[in-house]
Design a protein around this nucleic acid. Structure first.
Lengths: 354, 354
DNA sequence: CTGAAAGCGCTTACAG
DNA sequence: CTGAAAGCGCTTACAG
């Protein structure tokens, strides 16, 4: 629509300029306020008037100016995705989910990486949100867990949805994933396979999920009568390289673990590399279980057994929560159960000694 | 800075409201126009005045309103990344590069996926660019190759930088990668390893890079006296799944190829899977060479020999071209040589019969 | 249900 | 080098 710029401009318009609300008002014979009401779907417009104005809008190909609306509304039509997750695959998946939800809403997605280590993070985020007057913000872990950031968003009156492995906020502003449950499944799986000397490479301490996943894993093992020896626990950084390094440490122990559970898939692939470099075959000499079930989990060899987190769906669900008020829905009442990760069994973990 | 909201508001400001250009003007004892000149780094301001105004700006923590500036300038401070590349890893890498370049510029990145198959692509892109009044747009392949899109951007007076494997536009609006060269390296490598029955899985015909990479590969083989038999050429879609499917076809041929070159890494991993499923070992039974050298190329096993494209750098370079005018640089004169991909030799391709 | 006025916070002419 | 006026294209009060 309005794609044909070579057509003569409709009645009384300056050529080469986009029509404004004034043009619509003049041609429709109403005030610009009435046009504004039609644009904003106000119920206080006579049906007859609405039809007339809508016709002119379509005829002219009028599109309200976002900057002007933003200036008057004191709010833009942009959703921010602020992230500090070190796994690019995690981020891109979540981003796709957010875009899925935004499609057709008229909102656009602004991506904004940050580093919680920087001492200007909070000021940076404040500047970003304040300058762009964001419609809302989506926060995956671990920015979602930073109360300084949350306080800043509240100060600025910027709606947000936090994604985290435990509830940290009101239901309307939270998407919770039960990582504890998923990690427990991983623990039971390895115990059931007969492993007793098990390693665990956690994520960085700055991520809540690190402790939650570690806790679920440890508890499930304990229930099966298997103890997680602290010597076999190492801290990674959710990156491939940190997985390699941590695994080299664990696999150098004597006796070495027969299985390793990692806090995410990225690090699990690091374990693959370390094992290969040390001449250990997976799963024959070492079982490995990851977390996230990124697309690449089923592309590597052997296929990675992993705890599946529907990251893309999570992005979509979080964005839908943000959009709910716009659709007249109370975000707190939106039907969105806690996300329950579940184990996807593949080839990277097998029965001990089989 | 300006991070402390509990401090009493400076002289004569309404509490809870951000200071505006009017506040700055009043307190500094100058007109708002002069403040505007200071903000926009106009040279026509007496040094003394500039210092005085700057002090008030800092004191108040004044930040110009982007919506208001955008409305007056008829341009926003947003850069769009419009993409249709089916490889999420390609996109995320490029995105990081663009973000690298945008850091500190005051511009933000809006990501906008699209599908050239849809018959509303052009209208969608027009609506996006027009509504957001984008500062500029970055176009990776294959949207970068769609003249309808380019014409739309020109209509809307929106600056753009195209990334493509051949030059399609003025130097200031183009970042060219010499894929031909890179693919030729791959061809020579396989020929030098003694392969003569070689398969090629191209990208989709809608990507120029498919033909360019295929051409470079074929020519290099020919120079080495090796012919690329059309029976051993298949068309993929730059996706993992399409790589699997195409490889299954090629590997079912009798005699089957001893090596396969794929148009990108994503499909190379598909070949890995197909080979495994058919009981073929890489590189013993089949050599594989990919293109892009995504991070995962060096994480899979065996490590993938691939033609390296500095995708992140490309994103950064393209964005720098877009920002050049803002920094007083002529984008056409920006020192940015053609990007020359080069082969990274790893373990997935080896000497025939060795 | 509809409208005239004022305002959102900046910049572009135009003077001086 | 500096400023008063008008304008960017919308919306919020406030009337009626």
């Amino acid at each position: 629509m309005a794609d044909d710029d070579t057509a003569p401009a409709p009645s009384g318009l300056k050529p080469g300029k986009r029509p404004t609300i004034n043009d619509v008002a003049r041609i429709a014979g109403v005030s610009k306020k009435t046009v504004s009401r039609v644009i904003n779907l106000s119920p206080f417009v006579r049906e007859e008037t609405r039809v007339k104005v809508t016709a002119v809008i379509d005829d002219l190909g009028f599109v309200p100016d976002l900057q002007a609306r933003g200036l008057a509304f004191r709010r833009s039509f942009l959703v921010g995705l602020i992230y500090d997750n070190p796994s690019p695959n995690y981020v891109v998946n979540m981003q796709q989910g957010v875009l899925d939800a935004l499609k057709g809403s008229g909102l656009e997605l602004v991506v904004h990486p940050c580093s919680r280590q920087s001492d200007t993070v909070v000021a940076d985020i404040r500047a970003f949100v304040e300058r762009q007057k964001l419609f809302g913000v989506i926060l995956p872990p671990s920015v979602s867990e930073d109360e300084r950031v949350i306080q800043t968003l509240r100060d600025l009156d910027c709606p947000y949805v936090r994604i985290a492995s435990i509830s940290l906020d009101a239901p309307g502003a939270m998407l919770v994933t039960n990582d504890h449950l998923g990690a427990a499944e991983a623990g039971r799986h390895l115990a059931d396979l007969g492993h007793t000397r098990i390693g665990f490479i956690s994520g960085p301490a700055s991520f809540r999920s690190s402790a939650v996943r570690g806790g679920g894993f440890r508890e499930a093992l304990a229930e099966k009568g298997v103890a997680l020896d602290d010597r076999y626990v190492a801290e990674g950084a959710y990156t491939f390289e940190s997985g390699v390094e941590a695994a080299m440490g664990l696999l150098a122990l004597d006796p070495r673990p027969t299985a390793i559970f990692t806090g995410n898939d990225e690090m699990a692939l690091g374990v693959f590399k370390a094992a290969r470099d040390m001449g250990l075959a997976i799963p024959d000499d070492l079982s490995v279980v990851g977390f996230d079930d990124l697309p690449m989990a089923s592309r590597v060899w052997p296929n990675l057994t992993s705890v599946r987190l529907p990251i893309r769906d999570m992005g979509r669900m979080a964005a839908e929560k943000l959009l709910a008020p716009m659709r007249g829905i109370d975000p707190a009442r939106l039907e969105q159960p806690e996300v329950r990760p579940s184990l996807v069994v593949r080839e990277s973990a097998r029965r001990l000694g089989a």
